[in-house]
Design a binder for these strands. Sequence first.
DNA 1: GGACAGACTTGTACGTATATAG
DNA 2: CTATATACGTACAAGTCTGTCC
Length: 448
Amino acid sequence: MVPKPPEGHKWKEVKHDQEGTWLAMWQENINGAYKYVMLAANSDIKGQSDYKKFEKARELKKYIATIRKDYNKELKSEVMAERQRATAVYLIDQFALRAGNEKGEDEADTVGCCSLKFEHVTLRPPDTVVFDFLGKDSIRFHEEFKVDSQVFKNLKIFKRSPKKEGDEIFDRLTTSSLNKHLSNYMNGLTAKVFRTYNASWVMSSLLKEMKSEGTIPEKVKDYNNANRKVAILCNHKRTVAGGHAAQMEKMGDRIKALYYQEYRIKQMMLDLDPKLKKKKGEAYFALKEGIDDEWVKGHQDAMVEEQREKIRKKFEKDNEKLVAEGQKEMKPKELDERLKAADELADKFKDERKRKKIEAEGKSPSIDKFEQQLEKLDTRIATMKTQSEDREQNKDVALGTSKINYIDPRLTVVFSKKFNVPIERFFSKTLREKFEWAIKSVDENWEF
DNA sequence: GGACAGACTTGTACGTATATAG
DNA sequence: CTATATACGTACAAGTCTGTCC
């Protein structure tokens, strides 16, 4: 049944097209772009086309060797158009460039492989090529690659005078001619299939050689590391968050604080048993690199201040409670009394600094207990460090796009089953719906 | 073979929900 | 328990690619 149009409107046309996947469409009034109402990603229709997309990429496996052999040969073709085509396919295959359609005057000045211009490619003998251009969404692609010597020669030829800035490198090539050529190898093969193929291929090779062990977060991190390699291949970048540097510093500070805690414990051990210094060696008891007296002083001041703040807050809260219960609140004098604990801490630190000695504390302290505390701190430091490294590595790489669009979801399912990590760790609720076809279709032995 | 119409995928930022550390 | 970090879902613009017409 045809649904009623919104009040005061009528359908321009009602179609019953079994091929199309859209429900309604209209032309946007600003630049005439077509807008579509389509089913959501979790629908059967979308799932099927997603499945087909990855199956197409898998099919490329059968032809890739021939294609590579051919373009390597055609890099030397006498026909310039063929030589350009071979070079372009090389770049698309090796470096995961997008096809690069021609764009209109009014659109952003971004490029892909076929639309690369003179100034986007710099040649550095003997065989290094520097790409620097704005790709889709004006994301910068800035990479340096070593290339096949014939590719280097070709690019040099394609840039030869009278070509100058603003001119296209592949002036005898369009995306349609390139895709037409590719479709000779395999039905439906186009430039974008290479991105899917290479992304999934890289992921599958990484997962094959991987031996993920340890806790679930550690295994997830292994997966993410592979995911990140794919994202880098596809140049999926993101803008570094505003507070990134500050956050890194904060984490670094926290790690330092943990190291300092260890230092204190070790000093306390010395307090209990001075002979340990000989046994464990001087270095064991030293302050970690990057931590000096000045830092320690600042850290201690902060700790004291923190405690003061805590006491004040607690005081206020207690008072609120008293009032709520209909009782009188405590006098400011009580707060001063409570704050003495912080003063004592400050005095203790001051004394320590003067005497350069840290006394063992806690009830019935023993070397054994301290050793245990140290062990706990060690693991905390280790997790913090990996977390901080992870964050730094991810600051400008977006993992989502490759996971959602390029990595065959069945690979993720295989990882999940092989290493016994719940799929929920990799796919959110919506993604599990989107990839239902993948989740229910494979076991741990499936191969891309 | 080039221009344009049309259909479908990809990609990031953003606001909000949720998890986590302190 | 609360502040903050992170994850999630979504919007919608920007791509790719096919088909048709000249």
